[in-house]
Design a protein around this nucleic acid. Structure first.
Lengths: 109, 109
DNA sequence: GTCAAATACATAGACTATCTATGTATATGG
DNA sequence: CCATATACATAGATAGTCTATGTATTTGAC
């Protein structure tokens, strides 16, 4: 029903989650899926390429660790560049909300 | 700067404009570009295929007319199906606003 | 003790919407 | 007379997301 709702906002959402502290891919996907009223579903085929893209662009830095108990985990940390990029994406989001929202209003001929 | 901001919302925006009355492609693009703080730019290569898609799905109906003064114009009218679809898209938009907005908030660890 | 499920990462391939670029034609204004 | 605005249209490139699949480990149920 509500597919494609993340489209265009995956980078922002991932960076926002990382802004609360280092974490790893699987946990990011879980968080997104859990904190979204059952509406969003961030797929692994989306997330992992996204993390690599963000790393290639210098917005995050990955490191291996925390594989004490289970399978190995690749953690990611937000860089300064990433923090700035996140602010930019948040600003873009708020502009989009306003502008598209106005266009979608009804009866404002 | 603010490119891709329409991404995923072109159909909704076009249907919303048509909900205010029949109009034609070029005028739709103008309206979007003008009513958006100079931020959005709906391209012809996006709009015309979009209108054909919407027509193929039964959400709009096109007809030729109004070519008194200038080049011929193809007008479009929203169908009942299109009106329902627009309501659905507006609802999806509001859900997205809430859900993504919450994920993007800062400091809610 | 074994097998299913959850955890965790990864990649290949398909899909699709949007953009860029280009083309056609008419009317208007300098 | 020629540039610009109007108006529609399509072909091709791009890129992000999804589907599907694969590997490996740990936990829990039976």
């Amino acid at each position: 029903m509500h597919r494609d709702m993340l489209k265009g906002h995956v980078d922002a959402v991932v960076l926002a989650i990382l802004s609360r502290g280092d974490t790893y891919g699987y946990a990011i996907a879980k968080q997104v899926n859990d904190r979204s009223e059952g509406v969003l579903s961030l797929k692994e085929g989306t997330l992992y390429p996204c993390l690599r893209r963000l790393e290639a662009e210098g917005y995050v830095e990955g490191y291996w660790g925390g594989d004490d108990d289970g399978p190995r985990r690749r953690y990611y940390a937000l860089t300064d560049r990433g923090r700035k990029h996140l602010e930019h994406l948040r600003a873009a989001w708020s502009v989009q909300q306003r502008v598209i929202g106005r266009l979608l209003e009804e009866g404002n001929a």
